[in-house]
Amino acid sequence: MGKSENELTWKELEVGGIVTEPGNASQYKTGDWRSQRPTYDFNKCLKCGICQIYCPEGCVNQNNQGYFEADLYYCKGCGICSRECPTFVITMKEEE
């Protein structure tokens, strides 16, 4: 991981501030924003992937069993996946 915006000196900046590491914003944790988290009852899951399609973060991935699950490092807890799931697999629960 490169230096953050608080550490970089002017000499270390790329020409014109160009960022040369594609997609390096994925280091940034947006999971902290969450006030509620998705919880899953995979018994009902059809593995259709609609939750993945509609996720604004693009943070829903398939786990080892092929079930779709949000990566809590990024998940902001919007609840779209829960709302759109056709078989009601996902329930939003308040973060402690």
Binding site: Y28, T30, D71
Partner: peptide, 9 residues
């Protein structure tokens, strides 16, 4: 990439 700072939802 995820890690973008859009509002929730």
């Amino acid at each position: 990439a995820p890690g973008h700072r859009a509002c929730i939802g």
